[in-house]
Nucleic acid binder design. Sequence first.
RNA 1: GUCCCGGUAGCUCAGUUGGAUAGAGCAACUGCCUUCUAAGCAGUGGGCCGGGGGUUCGAAUCCUCCCCGGGGCGCCA
Length: 592
Amino acid sequence: MKAEITSLLQQAIQSLQSDGVLPADVSPNIQIDRTRDKSHGDFACNIAMMLAKPAKMKPRDIAVKIVTILPDSPVVEKVEIAGPGFINFFITANAQTMVVPAILEAGDRYGRSDLGKGKRVQVEFVSANPTGPLHVGHGRGAAYGATVADLLAAVGFDVHREYYVNDAGRQMDILATSVWLRYLGLCGVELDYPGEQDFPSNGYKGDYVWDIAATLHRENADAMQKSWAEISDGLPDDEPAGGDKELHIDALINKAKTLLRDDQYRLVFDLGLNYILDDIRDDLEHFGVTYDEWYSERSLADSGAVMKALERLQASGHTYEKGGAIWFKSSDFGDEKDRVLVRDNGQTTYFASDIAYHMHKMERGFERVIDIWGADHHGYVPRVKAALEALGDDPKKLDVLLVQFAILYRSGEKVQMSTRSGSFVTLRQLRKEVGNDAARFFYVMRKSEQHLDFDLDLAMSQSNDNPMYYIQYAHARVCSVFRQLEEKGLSHDAQNGLAELGQLDTSHEQALFTNLGKYPEVLENAAINHEPHQLVHYLRDLANDFHTYYNAHQFLVEDVAVRDARLSLNQAVRQVLANGLKLLGVSAPESM
RNA sequence: GUCCCGGUAGCUCAGUUGGAUAGAGCAACUGCCUUCUAAGCAGUGGGCCGGGGGUUCGAAUCCUCCCCGGGGCGCCA
């Protein structure tokens, strides 16, 4: 519809240009907007105002000239000039109804497009360290990332979903060491810290660590047992004893590595890693979030990719040595300061891996790379882009989307997020409490860069306060109408329904036609701008229009023409609601 | 100090990328179930769009300076 009007305007403007009425050297960007107010027609164009300056004419005069030579079209009922120079288009009733057969024919493909033209896009999201179960903060990234990926796929991009597994860093060593220490506990070895303390203050203390340790103990009995005397020998004090907790945990890690030697340590390490990774994978799968690839950070180092990245950076001349460390001169590319790549102890930093990772993303030929990070990582963006630029890649190909925190509320009170306290923090617990549908829905209901107040009571409430139920209810109502139809021994002649759509001329039906027609535009906007919340709001609007319609008119009426037509409209509404909910990862129930 | 995000109805938030008279939901008040699901619908009230200045036909939207709230600024990952 938009394209049709755009083409009409193009023809008019071109002929005005060749007649010399309008300057030929301006190539106007014709913009068609849907009107907010029905009295302004269905579509409005502001082109006359845009052309006023270059043409040195009054906007309304230009509008008059355009409108008088505008070619006729079967879809345009009338054209009006209004306000400062808007050209308003009124669509014919017949053209309005055409959206219904279009929807029914396309079915679950309605709204999809080839806007992306099959361009390869990578979406990397969640990528939480495998050191513990996912918490509710990760949940937002998961729901958001999955929906953005699905939206991009829906508008024709070739989407690759990826989870970057940080299986190489110090955090993983801390996990492995924590598991081993818990295992020692199961072997009956007491960690004889001074005072009340019984575990390193920087260790992972969650219950899942005990679970992993139990597996370790079951499979290896006491084979990895060492005495506390061996372990504590030469160990610097932990924080409660007046020492430095970082030094303490690092020394413990080294102890574990030397006492267990490489093969045993690796066993503990991999057991912890795989246990947690399986848990995360399972959690996400139940949440409707799946990946094409789980990309291992360790594999980057193993394959030499990190070294390759460092060499390329060095070759580009943007590195230098200072204080025994190797630095990247990221300040040359707009970062606020330079960053360390290789520490004075010879170890590469996480940043070095990340450069290698992003370099490899580019090498894999993605035309666009989207990283979804927590907003607390925003300071990290400039240095990654700097690295890409230094490597000769185009930093504009990388789009980093930042997701703000989600704050849970229960009975109007903020839920405290402490790992120790009993209040739930994991994604799994949230899913269990409010259900997958509500969790997916509420997570993407707000703009991603907006702090999210996640109201648990609202997510679980079965009332019109809850926008998800409101939308699902609209879908269930349509299904119910068709059930009733059957119970009454009637049937729906779809052919006749489409033929009789002209019967539908109430304001409620008109509103539905318009809104149904908007769906493809909403999808495109939501996808291109990475804003799933646009789809949420649209579906709420559509549901609202339907509920209004439902209350204002009886569908199962005596008049067969009207009944069939209304049922066809019902089908179209159901289809669009189902398509939209599917993209959000939310179910479309047939009854509630 | 600096950088990022936010500030719109009592509350939670939209606002079609600069368009016409700023919109929803909740909360408050008033109506509607012998009818296809009342998990619904209709109606009323409620606004210095944080503040000042600028850009132009036109600003909640863009620029700038302040004010307020949240967050980031490691040889951690």
